Amino acid sequence: MSRLEFRVHELTVGQLAERSGVAVSALHFYESKGLISSRRTAGNQRRFTRDTLRRVAFIKVAQRVGIPLDRIREALATLPEERTPTVEDWARLSETWRAELDDRIAQLEKLRDDLTDCIGCGCLSIKTCALANPYDRLGDEGPGPRRLLVERHRDRAKPSGKAAATSTTPCTPNCP
């Protein structure tokens, strides 16, 4: 990988791709979605400011933790265009996702803990199954896998409602 000269203030799409580890096609996609921006030269070539490297790194990290692109775009829109974002800018931006990330972590921990003996294959051969819902009793609570969902601001240590009452119902061949 070639090292970028400090005095280089704009990068070509190839330089940005090489330095960020993101394919040129992905950079074009990010630009089409409004996540990054470039200016065009007289020859219609893209030129990106150096701070785009930070934005691309932020996009990659946010995608890695499951933040949707539209939320990433909204967050990046709050950053200043006229200057490189400061530590305070990034801290303010990341704070807006703290509750959402805490919820995602809780959801992953619940999945890890509840599915230790079950991969959700539908065989129903295990004595207790977090996916079992005899007679669709959990349908009254809403759509989706009710026992596996962790909802925001809910006590994550204890399931609530009907899910708590039926979470250890034994699985039988008639309980899908």
Rank of each mutant, 00 (worst) to 15 (best):
104 R>H: 08
115 L>M: 15
36 I>F: 03
38 S>M: 09
128 T>C: 07
56 V>E: 03
101 L>F: 10
67 I>Q: 00
126 I>N: 01
169 T>S: 05
143 P>A: 06
7 R>S: 08
165 A>R: 00
123 C>G: 15
119 I>Y: 11
2 S>K: 10
149 L>V: 03
1 M>F: 04
28 H>S: 12
72 I>L: 11
77 A>H: 15
45 Q>N: 14
145 P>L: 13
4 L>S: 03
175 C>A: 05
124 L>P: 02
56 V>M: 12
66 G>F: 02
69 L>C: 11
148 L>A: 02
8 V>I: 13
94 S>G: 03
171 C>E: 00
163 A>N: 02
84 T>F: 09
98 R>K: 15
35 L>N: 00
76 L>G: 00
26 A>K: 05
78 T>F: 08
78 T>Y: 08
91 A>K: 12
159 P>N: 05
79 L>K: 05
10 E>P: 02
134 P>S: 05
12 T>S: 15
3 R>K: 13
102 D>E: 12
70 D>R: 14
79 L>A: 10
158 K>E: 11
9 H>F: 10
121 C>I: 14
33 K>M: 15
151 E>L: 10
127 K>N: 06
2 S>G: 07
16 L>P: 02
30 Y>V: 03
73 R>M: 04
129 C>T: 00
56 V>I: 15
174 N>Y: 09
79 L>V: 14
127 K>P: 02
153 H>Y: 09
60 K>F: 05
14 G>Q: 10
60 K>H: 12
12 T>R: 07
16 L>F: 06
31 E>C: 11
110 K>G: 01
131 L>I: 01
46 R>I: 04
136 D>T: 13
161 G>Q: 08
91 A>F: 06
152 R>I: 08
99 A>M: 14
159 P>M: 05
114 D>S: 14
174 N>T: 06
143 P>M: 04
175 C>G: 02
74 E>Y: 10
111 L>G: 12
20 S>K: 01
6 F>H: 14
37 S>E: 07
80 P>G: 06
126 I>H: 01
88 E>Q: 04
44 N>S: 15
176 P>Y: 05
94 S>E: 03
109 E>G: 06
4 L>T: 00
121 C>V: 13
162 K>V: 01
84 T>E: 15
127 K>G: 03
104 R>L: 10
43 G>W: 06
171 C>K: 01
146 R>Q: 00
86 T>A: 09
42 A>V: 13
132 A>F: 01
160 S>D: 02
1 M>Y: 04
93 L>F: 08
137 R>Q: 05
93 L>S: 07
129 C>I: 00
40 R>I: 14
155 D>T: 08
168 T>Y: 04
87 V>G: 04
107 Q>V: 13
67 I>S: 03
162 K>A: 00
107 Q>G: 08
68 P>E: 09
122 G>F: 12
111 L>Y: 07
129 C>M: 02
132 A>K: 01
4 L>F: 01
115 L>Y: 08
89 D>S: 07
112 R>Q: 11
62 A>D: 00
153 H>G: 12
50 R>Q: 08
76 L>I: 13
126 I>D: 01
130 A>H: 01
